[in-house]
Amino acid sequence: MFQFIQHCISDFIDLLFPDLCVGCDQLLNTSEKYICSHCRMNLPETGHHREPYDQILLNKFAGKVPIQFIASYVYFTKGSSVQKIIHQIKYKGQKEAAKEIARWYGYLLKSESKAVEAIDVVISVPLHKSRLQQRGYNQADWIAEGLAEALEIPVCKDVVIRNQFKESQTNKNRLERWENVKSAFSVLNSESVLDKHVAIVDDVLTTGATIEACATELLKAGCRSVSVLTLAVAGR
């Protein structure tokens, strides 16, 4: 009887708050989680993990900071389902979706990329404590958790902190983004990353200024090498 009541309550909640796809807002069926089959099948995958030393991406950091390899799961373009998904993850509390999608990517990387075998630890790009309090979570943390789980690599938390509360990077060019973040990060507990290959994780790779600033501090702290993994990369 109790189980029947629980089932009825669950059905009632589902009726009031149905599970919708974070990419298209359509109802999910019972076998789908966070993203409908149509949106998942049509994700514009980059295939970067098959060419992790792609010079087009590495050139974002050329002459600035040495990055071993870069891989992003999907392309981000304005008006796309990926933009909708990232928006839902970043601003609408869909952190579990971030972890699930990152887990998909992690399994793909593990099965098809030799490059990720060199990674020792995963570190997410941090938010300033004021932004974290405002938003309630850091989407990069959840992405890092999903990737690390699939790759079976530890996540190093509370190693990199964001010193300054900076305005949004949106609509800034590369120089403006760099000026906005050039002294934004510090490394604590440097022994956690000493002589290790660190994968820096974020949601979207655009100009690379934020990751560059983060990587610079990690290398100063004694990291052996740094690579970059993101859910999406701007452009195509």
Rank of each mutant, 00 (worst) to 15 (best):
M1V: 13
Q3I: 05
I5W: 08
Q6N: 13
S10P: 05
F17L: 11
F17Y: 15
L20M: 09
C21Q: 02
C21R: 06
V22P: 02
G23S: 04
G23H: 02
L27N: 13
S31L: 09
S31V: 02
K33C: 07
K33R: 14
K33V: 13
Y34F: 15
I35F: 00
C36M: 07
S37A: 12
S37K: 11
H38F: 14
C39K: 00
R40N: 08
N42L: 10
N42M: 10
L43A: 06
E45F: 14
R50H: 15
P52L: 08
L58Y: 01
L58A: 02
K60L: 13
A62P: 10
K64L: 15
I67R: 03
Q68W: 11
S72H: 08
Y73K: 10
Y73I: 07
V74G: 09
Y75R: 13
G79V: 08
Q83C: 04
I85H: 06
K90H: 04
K92I: 07
K92D: 12
G93V: 06
A97W: 07
K99V: 01
Y105I: 01
G106W: 00
L108G: 10
L109M: 10
K110V: 05
E112Q: 12
S113K: 03
K114W: 10
K114L: 13
A115M: 01
V116T: 06
D120W: 00
V122D: 00
S124Y: 05
V125K: 01
V125E: 02
P126Q: 04
H128L: 02
S130D: 12
S130P: 01
R131G: 04
Q134E: 14
Q134G: 01
R135M: 08
R135K: 05
D141K: 02
A144Y: 00
A144W: 00
E145V: 12
G146A: 03
L147K: 03
A148P: 02
E149H: 10
L151I: 02
I153F: 08
V155T: 09
V155Y: 05
K157M: 09
K157C: 11
D158N: 14
V160M: 08
V160N: 00
N163M: 12
Q164A: 14
E167H: 13
S168Y: 10
S168L: 04
N171R: 14
N171L: 12
N171P: 09
N173L: 06
R174K: 15
L175V: 13
R177N: 04
W178Q: 10
W178C: 06
N180T: 05
V181D: 06
K182Y: 14
S183V: 14
F185Y: 11
V187Q: 07
L188C: 15
S190F: 12
S192Y: 15
S192G: 13
L194H: 15
L194S: 15
L194C: 15
D195A: 12
V198E: 03
A199C: 13
D203W: 06
D203P: 03
D203Y: 00
V204C: 03
T206H: 02
T207N: 04
T207F: 09
G208W: 04
G208F: 03
T210V: 05
I211A: 11
A213M: 05
A213L: 05
C214E: 07
C214I: 08
T216S: 13
L218W: 06
L219A: 03
G222A: 04
T230D: 01
T230W: 00
L231H: 02
